[in-house]
Design a binder for these strands. Structure first.
Length: 605
RNA sequence: UGGGGAUUGGUGUAACGGUAGCACGACUGACUCUGGAUCAGUUAGUCUAGGUUCAAAUCCUAGAUCCCCAGCCA
């Protein structure tokens, strides 16, 4: 038996494998149960709660979680909440929801590789102790230069930076540090800086700031602190404290790696067996990869925040946004997002990924999983003029319709067929071009699961718009089946099959047709301002007619793990029930269209 | 102009001195009660110039192009 083709392993997989083989990180201890004795692999996803997670974060989540999952290790969710001026509880809640929805279970009680939920802010005390230690070791000092002064004294690649406080006595720094801790100094009065190398060509090593004074309440620690650690100081310590083995981050932090290494080494200086400083601390390995950059998308949190605040979109979960919350509301499945992240791979080369790949991933999953239904978005009426030939003109015939041709177990449902129907306006042309296989004067089409009908005429209203299409039906095609063969033994053929709903049974629903938010592959690239590339038609709202089974959900519908009802509207695309939908006021979102070969053909003509 | 990275078909990604492969797209065709799906096929690539080697995407030298770094943001 051959396994399906495995996901190609990427360079980080290979590092993890090599580390396991060499025993670099040791093995999990006995109390780890099933994990005990296996090589230790511990990863994490470390978001700052200053915005909603987006598709780029999904790649990082899938990568980090996947590393832990495939090696039987652990995965942590850790909030990098070191800046109270930008962070909020709302974002913490949204991030937790999104990470769980994606399937990266970090709760040890719920997932096999759950490592736990952590907050950098819970380590503030330990970080402060480390900082004090570095001051005592002469590896850090308190600098009273203003932000402006530091900037002016930064130097150039060729000329070093300067600080007059660099060589102040340890005791003096210690005293000021204690004052900072006690909240005695105003914002900006002083910083704690590492004493590294003011002449380094890597600016990150030019005595970087470890702490700044911020008198601001924190969502987790309240007003316990008025000094907050900088990312560079905090991040490596967070990983160290949690025993992270493979600290995966994006390429722009590569220049920071020497700094993280320096901090850990400086703390470990003089530490060890019998040392008054204590035991040596864990030194994780940072590995950088190229972040995801999809086409037609803006991903910087700064710009996403602006889009929300300026009203360009209706919120972080506006289905046109690239956030996880928005993708969920739009109808994307966690499976499809994970497949997409797997598909794009992990490398150090920066590349731009066609957003169409995400759409393809959604189609691929939804094609297998979504039940089929019929809905007419832009209706035009069809009257079956010979309906009375089959009996009572007011009769309703219930047709069997397959729920999902990709899944026999999904069964079928009944769809009412009557004298008056709605079909899609696009499915009729008065003067059809070549290769138009749908309805036209004199043409015959199949109404899916119902009957073959032939157009015998049209009725126009005063404005010249088509008001009614008159057709006759062939009773021998009931169920949509081929009619019996003629005397020559040959059966009539029909080229097109179109969807429909019964006018007297259809319910109404609002359907939101989303398109890309931007017209340009790289929004803002040409003008420098992404708003110039906004797509004015990114949202169209229509009032659709839907078949009864859509209004009254019932059997034959799968249980979606996240409770969101998703469907394929035949020939139109994949849709889901929006979170604003209410009984009697149904709202559907279009996740993605079906591929449309006719649209392509029509564009050629 | 200092430092750190990157470069393989249209796009993404494999190769780890030994047959340049896979996926997506595009294009053909088959099939189809969704112009969907499915199936079959075609298309097209190692940044440049030198060098080492029986053999180079891979090693060496020089160059080109792109990305990141001078927040008390992360």
């Amino acid at each position: 038996m051959s396994e399906p083709a495995e996901r190609a392993s990427h360079f980080i997989d290979q590092i993890v494998e090599a580390d396991a083989a060499s025993g670099k990180w040791g093995v999990w201890p006995a109390q780890e149960g099933a994990r005990a004795g296996k090589p230790r692999v511990h990863t994490r996803f470390p978001p700052e709660p200053n915005g909603y997670l987006h598709i780029g974060h999904a790649k990082s989540i899938c990568l980090n979680f996947g590393l832990a999952e495939r090696s039987g290790g652990k995965f942590n969710l850790r909030f990098d909440d070191t800046n109270p001026t930008k962070e909020e509880q709302e974002y913490v809640d949204a991030i937790i929801r999104d990470v769980k929805w994606l399937g990266a279970e970090f709760d040890p009680a719920k997932g096999a590789c759950g490592g736990g939920l952590f907050f950098a802010s819970n380590y503030f005390g330990q970080m402060y102790a480390y900082a004090e230690e570095l001051v005592k070791k002469g590896r850090a000092y308190v600098c009273e230069l203003s932000a402006d002064e530091v900037s002016k004294r930064r130097g150039t690649p060729q000329t070093p930076a300067t600080s007059p406080f660099r060589d102040r006595p340890v005791e003096e720094s210690l005293k000021l540090l204690a004052g900072m801790r006690a909240g005695k100094h105003p914002n900006g009065a002083m910083t704690v800086r590492a004493k590294i190398d003011l002449a380094s060509p890597n600016f990150n090593l030019r005595d970087p700031v470890m702490y700044r004074i911020v008198h601001e309440p924190h969502h987790n620690t309240g007003d316990a602190w008025s000094m907050y650690p900088m990312y560079d100081w905090a991040h490596g310590l967070e990983d160290s404290l949690e025993g992270i083995t493979h600290s995966v981050c994006t390429l722009e932090f590569e220049n920071h790696r020497p700094l993280y290494d320096w901090f850990i080494d400086a703390i470990n200086e003089g530490r060890g067996e019998g040392s008054a400083w204590g035991p040596r601390i864990h030194h994780p390995q940072q590995i950088e990869f190229a972040k995801l950059r999809p086409t037609y998308t803006v991903l910087s949190k700064r710009n996403l925040l602006k889009m929300v605040e300026s009203g360009i979109v209706k919120g972080w979960d506006d289905p046109r946004m690239p956030t996880i919350s928005a993708l969920r509301r739009r109808g994307f499945t966690p499976e499809s997002i994970r497949a997409f992240c797997d598909d794009v791979g992990v490398t150090r080369a920066e590349s731009i990924i066609d957003i169409g790949r995400l759409e393809n991933a959604a189609r691929e999953h939804l094609n297998k999983a979504a039940p089929r239904r019929m809905a007419v978005l832009r209706p035009v009426k069809v009257v079956i003029t010979n309906w009375k030939d089959g009996g009572d003109e007011a009769r309703v015939e219930w047709m069997d319709a397959v729920n999902n041709p990709e899944d026999a177990a999904a069964g079928s449902r009944r769809v009412p067929f009557t004298k008056e129907l709605f079909i899609e306006r696009d499915d009729f042309m008065e003067a059809p071009p070549k290769k138009f296989f749908r309805l036209a004067p004199g043409a015959e089409v199949r109404l899916r699961y119902a009957y073959w009908v032939t157009c015998t005429g049209i009725v126009k209203d005063a404005a010249g718009e088509i008001a009614e299409i008159h057709c006759t039906y062939d009773p021998r095609t009931r169920g949509g089946n081929d009619p019996p063969p003629g005397p020559d033994g040959k059966s009539r053929k029909v080229k097109g099959t179109i969807h429909w709903v019964s006018a007297s049974h259809a319910a109404r629903a609002e359907v939101r047709l989303f398109d890309r938010l931007f017209n340009a592959e790289e929004p803002g690239k040409a003008s420098g301002d992404y708003t110039t590339d906004l797509n004015p038609r990114s949202l169209e709202v229509v009032s659709a007619y839907i078949e009864p089974a859509l209004a009254e959900p019932g059997d034959g519908e799968p249980e979606w793990a996240d409770g969101i009802r998703r469907y394929q509207f035949e020939r139109l695309g994949y849709f889901c029930v929006d979170s604003e939908s209410r009984p009697g006021a149904l709202v559907f979102n279009r996740t993605v269209t079906l591929k449309d070969a006719w649209a392509k053909e029509a564009a050629k003509q």
